[in-house]
Design a protein around this nucleic acid. Sequence first.
RNA 1: GCCCGGGUGGUGUAGUGGCCUAUCAUGCGGCCCUGUCGAGGCCGCGACUCGGGUUCAAAUCCCGACCUGGGCGCCA
Length: 426
Amino acid sequence: MINSKDANITDDGYIEIAGWVHEIRDLGGIRFLLVRTRDDIIQVTFSKRKVSGELIEKVKTISRESVIHVKGRISKDERAPNGFEVIPNIVDILSVAESPLPLDPTDKVVAELDTRLDNRFLDMRRPKVKSIFMIRGLVVRAIRDFLYGKNFVEVTTPKIVATATEGGTALFPISYFDREAFLNQSPQLYKQILMSSGFERVLEIGPIFRAEEHSTRKHLNEATSIDVEVSYVDDSEVMKLLEELIIYIYEYINVNADKYLKTIGIDLKIPTRPFRQISYEEAIEIVDLKWGDDFGSLEEKKLGNEIGEHYFIKEWPLKLKPYYTMPLEKKGKTEILSKSFDLMHPRVELASGSQRINDYALLKKQMELRGLNPDNFSFYLDAFRYGMPPHAGWGLGLDRLVMTMLDLDNVREAVMFPRDRRRLIP
RNA sequence: GCCCGGGUGGUGUAGUGGCCUAUCAUGCGGCCCUGUCGAGGCCGCGACUCGGGUUCAAAUCCCGACCUGGGCGCCA
């Protein structure tokens, strides 16, 4: 079996590789095939002096991006790209690629994002694009690594639900046998219920769905959310956890994904701790808003430029946050604040969280104040009637995290098969 | 949802009424070439989103449809 990591090099100096024909350079008497495996590009050299005429004839028929298997001898040679090349004995053509290709995997002519997404299978063969997703996989691994180390239990909650979670966003209705149902916008209610069940520290990595008809570089209709909920802590403690996690991820990627970062051409700067924390009140002063206003795109941009690195906005007006957010009374303030926070990257919001209300009567009251009918949420509210610990948590957008970390222009670049207002295929 | 752009060979582009039998790169095919690594040289192939209109004449102007990029709103 040929592991794509990449080559099985045997003691007698033989190597076996399988992959795609990345480029063909035919100089007449000598022909170079660059074979691309998952992580490397290896040169296979066919010179008339060292390779049989029969094999050379066979190789002439191979089209770019065909899949081949090569067995040959390793030859150290300074003239070869990585200091070595393969002098082949056997070449098997495993799959012939048609021509012309819908886009060029060698980056000579870069296709537009739309063309790339239409042909994502080919687009992801490009080393730069593949590196993004290799890193994304490692980010998820880092998250699990970090949170498992802190005794979190990973859970999965339903994505098909009967009611909206928090209001605010539009939901996708689906038909569920003879009933109406929705795709869940967030695991919020379920992870809170799990606090009542005594799991104390839960982690969920999963899809969330928003039916908003926006078309921007930072929104998707299907996103991946990293959700955390913790019992017996307040908002400041989960802020600290979030901050530590972000740093851990950056450091993990810096150490474990060096090769991919180089391929993308990123010099990863690890954010400095502690992240700056500004209150909502301070933030509106910077961008010249009135109390009670939410930040629009322009304000977000202005704040980001002003601060220039990761930061928290905390102590939001209660009315700007969902009903389950814990109110905060501050001495000398008449306005009702909340024990809530957003984690911001200069470009975009990454996460938001809060301490949650764990008192049944207060929670019910907050729902009613926002015009929600508590009867529709009894599956959730009941969990607060029989012993609910105080708890806090947050949701972090994985796609945006990867986008900002790798400085990608568009969040779609960080998602293999993005779902936006127009795109449902592939 | 609102506003502003754009649709030209497989890919990426130039061309904004006649000079277009449409530019260039890449690709593909053929030929030459034994050290390429953005290989090189020569020859060839391949395109104006669709429908209607204006005009002597439309890739170019107008209308509609479809596709698409960006910004805003909303949202995370």
